[in-house]
Structure formats: structure tokens, C-alpha cells
């Protein structure tokens, strides 16, 4: 846990020192190019890697009643029989984390005696669902908001988004809710790994590192907007230069900006080699993205081995006499009368 924190701090420090020492273009230009390339190529490679292995069997996890007799109501989404059902299931899975939400449906709570254990309900899965959802959506919105820097003129929808995001009208520059929620959600996700024994037990560096990294990105981002107020216009010109492959001088931009960029680049570099590939992987999941129709439509296994089994002929050869004795019909009568 601390290793990954130190690693993130180290990356930040290097970027800070480097850009302050005049290598700003390295962290502001070269690194992002490299990171974007690695991200795109890496993700494509990972998806190709998955896609190269076939799905030999149709193994959806059925979460409800199958399509069956007319008078029995099918759970069309949880146990889809058609592509439309699969689409709905995947949509709910990807957009609303339906499987995580399932956890919350537990009821029938008994009257609890005195002791309910310290910190009990806090870590329940409902919170996980809630914060996971908040995290992912806020991250998306924050990402979209950044299009202010990537497009000239600033697209109309970005402005709308910002208006919506700053609806609370606190402070100047106006406080964006998504940034705050993102930070809170990340702290929750990190907190449960640190404080919940069960989670601590299963967590690896691979789990802490992205969380610290994202925390670093969010914190530097927030600093850049509210505290170490960066010269937005200059940053925009710089970023537009980068996105249009004609980088301009980074002169005058605060080093913190490069720390932010370096951390984002690290995230992109790390992404295709880590569990973060779940972003693409969820669409490939064979227990979710297939219809439960394998009795209706034959699913083909490309490597289906040849049939090899103890055939009836072999079976009858082995037991012909006793079968005849028992009066069972035979393909071939025994040589001598059964006796």
C-alpha cells in the first residue's frame, strides 16, 4: 500500500522537478504522446488477445427464470433469451452495475442483540455499488469537461456540462461537484481496502496503485483549478498545440500542471497492463453477454474434439450374455443360447 503511494509521489516529484528544471516538454509533450500511443495500442492488443481465444461454450449465469412454457413468466433481462434481452442486461450491467446492486436486496433482518460488530454496515456492498457508480460517472464527466481544453471553440455541450456541474454556485472559480464527489468516492474505495480486514487480505499493489494514482490526478487537478490557479488560456494553447501535433513552448506554465499530465500519462501507460482493462473486458464477459438459448440454438465450439466414447456396440459385446438372460432386446444375438 505504501509502496504504491510512494511510487505515485515519486512520479509526481520527478515530473515537478523535471518541468521546473526545463524539461517541461518532456512531461507535457513526449510523455503524453507515448502514453496515448501505448494506451491505444495496448488496449487493442489486449482486446485482440481476448478475442483470439474462442468462447467454446455458452455459459451465461442465469439470474432469473428461463424462457420456457407460455404460462411461466420469463425474466427477460436477467435470463435473456434473445439478443435484445442480452443488450438490456449488458446495458444495466455496464451503466448501472446491476450485479453489484444485487447485493442490496437482502432483507429479513433479525432483531439484533446488543452486539452488531464494529463498523459493520458501513462496508456493506450497497455502499460499494453507490461509490463505484459515483466514481465511474464522475470520472466520465470530469473527463468530458476537459474537452474545454481539447477543442476550439469550446463545444456547447461542455459549457452545459460545466453549468450543470457547478450548479451549487460555490466559490470562484465555481466549484465543480464532480471533482469533489470523485475525490470522496476514491477515498471510500481506498478506505475500504485499508480498513476492512477482508479487503486488506485480498488487495495487492495492483489495487492500491491505481487508486493512489487517481487520487494524485484528482488532487493535482483540483489544485490547478482552485488553489494554484493556472493560467487557463496558456494551458489551453499548450494543449491545443499537443493535440494538433504542433507543440508550442511550455514557458510560464506551473510545474504542477506537468505533474497532473505526468500522472494522467502514467495512468494511460499502466492501463492496458492492469486490471483496469475491465473497462473493455466487461463487454467480453461470456457469463453476461450471451443469451441463455443453448437448448434452442446450437452453440459451436471451434475446437470441439472428436467424439470418443464407449459405444453401444462395445457395451453390448461386453454384456451380451447377461443382457440376453435379462430379456433385453439386442442388436446381435449371442452365439450360444443364454443359460
Amino acid at each position: 500500500m505504501f509502496v504504491s503511494l510512494l511510487l505515485v509521489l515519486l512520479i509526481g516529484a520527478i515530473a515537478w522537478a523535471g518541468s521546473a528544471a526545463g524539461f517541461a516538454s518532456l512531461f507535457g509533450v513526449a510523455l503524453p504522446y507515448l502514453a496515448a500511443a501505448v494506451f491505444v495500442v495496448g488496449m487493442i492488443r489486449r482486446m485482440v488477445y481476448w478475442a483470439k481465444s474462442p468462447v467454446p461454450f455458452r455459459i451465461p449465469t442465469t439470474g432469473g427464470q428461463e424462457q420456457s412454457l407460455d404460462f411461466i413468466r420469463q425474466a427477460k433481462i436477467d435470463c435473456p433469451g434473445t439478443q435484445a434481452g442480452v443488450f438490456a442486461r449488458m446495458f444495466l450491467e455496464v451503466c448501472l452495475f446491476r450485479s453489484l446492486f444485487r447485493n442490496t436486496e437482502a432483507d429479513a433482518r433479525a432483531g439484533l442483540p446488543a452486539n452488531s460488530g464494529p463498523g459493520s454496515v458501513y462496508y456493506s456492498s450497497k455502499w460499494l455499488w453507490c461509490f463505484a457508480l459515483l466514481f465511474h460517472y464522475c470520472f466520465l464527466l470530469v473527463f468530458l469537461r476537459h474537452f474545454r481544453f481539447f477543442a476550439e471553440p469550446t463545444p456547447q455541450w461542455v459549457t452545459w456540462l460545466e453549468t450543470l456541474d457547478g450548479l451549487m454556485q460555490i466559490g470562484a472559480p465555481r466549484f465543480f461537484m464532480t471533482g469533489g464527489i470523485l475525490l470522496a468516492a476514491l477515498l471510500f474505495l481506498l478506505g475500504r481496502r485499508v480498513f476492512n480486514g477482508r479487503l486488506r487480505c485480498i488487495s495487492l499493489v495492483n489495487d492500491y496503485f491505481p487508486l493512489w494514482l487517481l487520487l494524485g490526478i484528482v488532487c493535482t487537478g483540483i489544485c490547478l483549478r482552485y488553489f494554484d490557479k493556472t493560467e487557463i488560456a496558456m494551458v489551453k494553447i499548450f494543449i491545443m498545440g499537443v493535440t494538433q501535433f504542433s507543440p508550442v513552448s511550455a514557458e510560464g506554465i506551473a510545474p504542477l500542471f506537468f505533474v497532473h499530465v505526468a500522472l494522467v500519462s502514467t495512468l494511460l501507460l499502466y492501463f492496458p497492463f492492469s486490471k483496469l482493462t475491465h473497462m473493455a473486458g466487461v463487454f467480453f464477459s461470456p457469463t453476461r453477454n450471451a443469451a441463455n438459448d443453448s437448448r434452442r440454438v446450437r452453440h459451436i465450439n471451434p475446437w470441439n474434439p472428436p467424439k470418443q466414447y464407449f459405444t453401444y456396440a462395445e457395451y453390448e459385446d461386453a454384456y451380451r450374455d447377461v443382457m440376453a438372460e435379462a430379456g433385453l432386446p439386442l442388436e446381435k444375438e449371442p452365439d450360444r443360447p443364454a443359460g
Partner: peptide
């Protein structure tokens, strides 16, 4: 087995260890 089963490759790669399955 990895070459034969997409499920295996995927399940090896994408677990985020969120712990929802544990209990």
C-alpha cells in the same frame, strides 16, 4: 486452456478484487 477459453483469459485479467463475491 488460455488459448481455448476466452473466459479464462478474461477472468484472469479483469478482476478488480472489489470483494463483492467474498461473502
Amino acid at each position: 486452456r488460455l488459448e481455448k477459453h476466452r473466459s479464462l483469459k478474461l477472468f484472469m485479467d479483469i478482476c478488480v478484487r472489489c470483494g463483492a463475491c467474498a461473502d
